[in-house]
């Protein structure tokens, strides 16, 4: 009765939504894998990246750069700025929310990163407008493009929609997600630094003894996490087109849920978890009458079921705690 095209539409939406969840979830599993802590502000870091890209774009636009320079160069430049911001933010997260709690209960960094996430979110909401407008005035003078309010929704530049086509944009989003996953996989499994990071996640003391520079690896983890989250922010922004300062909390919760469902330590688990969550949400919305109201409730129910009955996730080894 329901046409095939409809199902395909839904699958397409679910894959795209799954990509956005996955990108944030990778951040969670990367940090958890190495540090054994949940860095809850991943979603906010990603959205901060998106907003810094948006701010830079606004300023570049005022300078008249965006029209004259080749599009690819502009995108790369913007990404570079976003990556810079997110990497710095990642380091700050480590300094203020992870490092002070190395010796205390594991819940301290969780609480601290939740609070830090709120700080990031509120700083975007409160500071975005003054900062962008101030800098834009300084750099672009009369041509400055002004942003209304930091808390109001902002429109993200549609750089990926080549010729206004969303199909191209969607393909790019999926492709970039896959490429990032592959690169991350290769990095973690084929490079010395990556292997060192995995070793730390297995056993910190032993890694120290075998001569791995643990603190350097941790810093690298946060920088890489920042890079991944900046790119996620860019893709999420391009996908949504309209961004709000508090989108980070929703992506954070969904990303964390995806990472848990997939298995917190595993990068591929993040993909599976993200896709599962997105499929549950989209299919419930699509096939149940008035299902949107219950879609995210059901997604959380799935998460709870996983935590209670299969806490190690879809991919993940069961561990038994020993004295």
């Amino acid at each position: 009765m329901v046409p095939m095209g409809y199902l395909l539409d839904l699958i397409g939406s679910a894959v795209l939504l799954g990509c956005t969840y996955t990108l944030v979830a990778i951040g969670f599993s990367l940090f958890f894998g190495v540090m054994d802590v949940v860095v809850f502000c991943c979603g906010d870091i990603a959205i901060f990246g998106a907003f810094s890209i948006l701010a830079s774009y606004t300023i570049l636009n005022g300078l008249g750069v965006t029209g004259t320079w080749p599009l690819l160069l502009v995108i790369l430049l913007l990404l570079l700025i976003g990556i810079l911001f997110c990497a710095v933010l990642g380091l700050l997260t480590h300094r203020f929310s992870i490092k002070p709690f190395e010796k205390s209960s594991a819940l301290m960094p969780l609480l601290s990163t939740i609070a830090l996430g709120t700080v990031i979110r509120e700083v975007i909401g409160l500071m975005f407008m003054p900062v962008t407008n101030g800098v834009a005035d300084m750099v672009a003078g009369e041509n400055a493009v002004h942003v209304v309010s930091g808390r109001n929704p902002q429109s993200f530049p549609s750089l990926l929609s080549l010729g206004g086509s969303t199909a191209a944009r969607n393909i790019i989003i999926v492709l970039v997600t896959v490429v990032i996953l592959l690169l991350l996989f290769l990095f973690l499994n084929k490079t010395k630094t990556g292997l060192a990071m995995q070793a730390i996640s297995q056993n910190k003391e032993l890694s120290l003894m075998t001569g791995i520079n643990v603190s350097r690896s941790i810093v690298i983890t946060f920088v890489i996490g920042g890079v991944v989250l900046a790119i996620s922010g860019f893709l999420v922004g391009s996908y949504q087109t309209i961004m709000s300062f508090d989108n980070g909390s929703m992506f954070g919760i969904k990303g964390f849920s995806a990472a848990v469902v997939g298995g917190l330590r595993n990068t591929w688990g993040a993909v599976l978890g993200g896709m599962l969550l997105a499929f549950v949400e989209v299919m419930v919305s699509g096939y149940v009458p008035n299902g949107s109201a219950y879609a995210s409730i059901l997604a959380f129910v799935v998460v709870v079921i996983f935590i209670v009955f299969k806490p190690e996730g879809i991919i993940g080894e069961k561990t038994v705690e020993k004295v």
């Binding site: 969780l110 964390f256 848990v260 917190l264 109201a293 959380f300 129910v301 935590i307």
Partner: peptide, 21 residues
């Protein structure tokens, strides 16, 4: 059955589900 992060996530999910429900 759970503890630590997982427990926190369960309660977090409960909080979000409660408001939406």
């Amino acid at each position: 059955r759970t503890k630590g992060y997982y427990l926190s996530l369960v309660t977090m999910a409960l909080q979000l589900v409660f408001t939406q429900l």
